[in-house]
Design a protein around this nucleic acid. Structure first.
Length: 243
DNA sequence: AACGTACCCTGCCGGC
DNA sequence: TGCCGGCAGGGTACGT
């Protein structure tokens, strides 16, 4: 499910409930998840994110590094099924993940550094810098999904940002004019910020400009929104606004 | 090096 | 109602 905005919303929810809490027990219900070190007895110092990664800083120089992938999420209320339960002095948090693509691992500071160093700039934490787009000949929509170029944009906000910047998703990334790259940088920030502000409500009735709106009119010009497939994922766009 | 494709899993939804 | 194919907002391991 989650892209940068959803991860940010989740981190905002986790922080106040877990920071300074001591881990009393960890229950791993899925053999696909292997925690290399025992973290029971450590405190959760901070919960933060980088791109779509969630990092729990623990006392004693260790981190819990989590990627939600498609369906991962954390809940305080016990769900029907969950992969991991983290029990703390301030309550239990459950890692649920229907498709089981998500990743949870215990890492050292060096390993964390290595993992995060592979990511491009984070548009919210660092400000949006898409200068790396000039280095690839792939379609700009596909390039936006590459976390090494920019960290946190996923399939929804790639389409949304390109609509906002009036760029055709099929255009080669390295052929964008500099002013179009700047427009896209602004559009990415606006799209992500807006989603963070709306919170989970953005998934309710029609808050998206183009995503999942194939066959419906463009909010700007009324042209019917099209759906195409790029790199095995859906792309939505307005062929008139986005030349 | 950089690009495309197959694959990892499960649940849901529409059509028959 | 029940089954089946298609689809899903992510990333990686390969092959070329």
């Amino acid at each position: 499910m989650p892209e940068l905005p959803e991860v940010q919303i989740l981190v905002n929810k986790l922080g106040p409930r877990l920071e300074r809490a001591r881990i009393q027990a960890i229950e791993v219900r899925d053999r696909k998840i292997k925690l290399r070190q025992n973290v029971v007895g450590r405190r959760i110092l901070r919960v933060w994110r980088r791109g779509k990664n969630i990092i729990f800083d623990l006392s004693g120089r260790l981190h819990l590094l989590v990627h939600l992938r498609m369906t991962g999420w954390f809940e305080f209320a016990e769900p029907k099924r969950y992969r991991v339960a983290i029990r703390t002095g301030k309550g239990t948090v459950y890692f649920e993940d229907g498709r089981r693509f998500g990743v949870m691992q215990v890492v050292t500071p060096a390993e964390l550094q290595l993992a995060l160093s592979a990511l491009g700039p984070d548009p919210i934490a660092d400000g949006c810098d898409l200068s790396q787009l000039r280095k690839t000949s792939r379609p700009v929509k596909v390039a936006l999904l590459d976390q090494r170029l920019v960290a946190g944009v996923g399939n929804i906000y790639a389409s949304e940002s390109l609509w906002r910047a009036r760029i055709n998703p099929r255009r080669r990334a390295d052929q964008l004019r500099p002013e179009k790259v700047r427009a896209l940088e602004r559009a990415v920030v606006v799209s992500l910020r807006k989603a963070i502000k709306y919170g989970p409500r953005i998934f309710e009735v029609q808050r998206f400009a183009v995503y999942e709106r194939a066959g419906r009119p463009c909010r700007r010009c009324g042209t019917i929104i099209r759906r195409i497939v790029q790199a095995q994922r859906s792309t939505y766009f307005c062929a008139k606004c986005q030349r």
